[in-house]
Amino acid sequence: MSEGTQLRVENVSLSDRLQNIELSFSPGSIQIVIGPNGAGKSTLLRMLAGIEEPSQGKIYLGKKCLTKLSSLEKAAYLSWLPQRPYLQKDLLPIDIVSAARYRIKERTRIAQKKAVAYLESTGCSHLAQKNIGSLSGGELQRVQIAALLAQEAPILLVDEPGNHLDPLGQKQTYELLAKAVQQGSKTLILISHDLRLAPLLGIPDETAENTSTSLGKPSCPKEVNVIGLKNARLEFCERIDAPQLPQQLENLYQLPYSSLKSSSPLAPQFMLTEQSTASASPEVIGERKGEG
């Protein structure tokens, strides 16, 4: 069941933050959710993670309604990486990652061993015993991706993983996600402002196709969709190679397509203004996450 579970959103609304959303995510696919600030992207993800309940409509996980499942059952399918996690400064990565395995009944010692293995897989096992308050943004993101994967859920919900990171950090983050998606045949639902990073997920891009070998990408997953949200409404949901996508992106952001998708995934000068101005360090303690 775990690998073939379809996530379906049926005519879902959440007060005025999301309205009449209709989506379906097939197993093993990659979904990139984009849209201007306040479009409801994070709300959609929080709802898929079961943290917020829709005020109208239903979300189905296979044949089951998401709101009817217990937290433990939900956690077996859905793993969520918040945009700005709330973490106390004196926590250790190993404790965070082993805590993420809550749904798996095992001894603390085993959980810690597994946690180290997952930290290893994201290239940060050397940070296992360091206070997270002393980590850099990129290091913290690696720890959090380790926690995301340690939950061993088939569907990953990732909220703007490249936010606050420098171009190299963004590249590494996306490559880690790509590795997880392809090796673990997981479904990835990702919020991102930057479609230029999509090739890093192993998605063939018409402009980046020739250089793909240099990134060492395995084969492309069968389905990659781009979901556009604006003003709490679903604007479009298109395959990434759909011919009408460029036009829809331009409509969505009111920006020329050339500035949204350039040949190089690492071209800081082309970054959307929103990405480059939101450069605050990851919030650690004392601040609430914003909605939207």
């Binding site: 993670a49 709330y86 996450k289």
Partner: peptide
């Protein structure tokens, strides 16, 4: 798990 924030606690399966 509440030390990692209540939302996160919920998402890893804590009621």
């Amino acid at each position: 798990s509440f030390a990692m924030g209540e939302d996160w606690a919920q998402s890893i399966g804590v009621s």
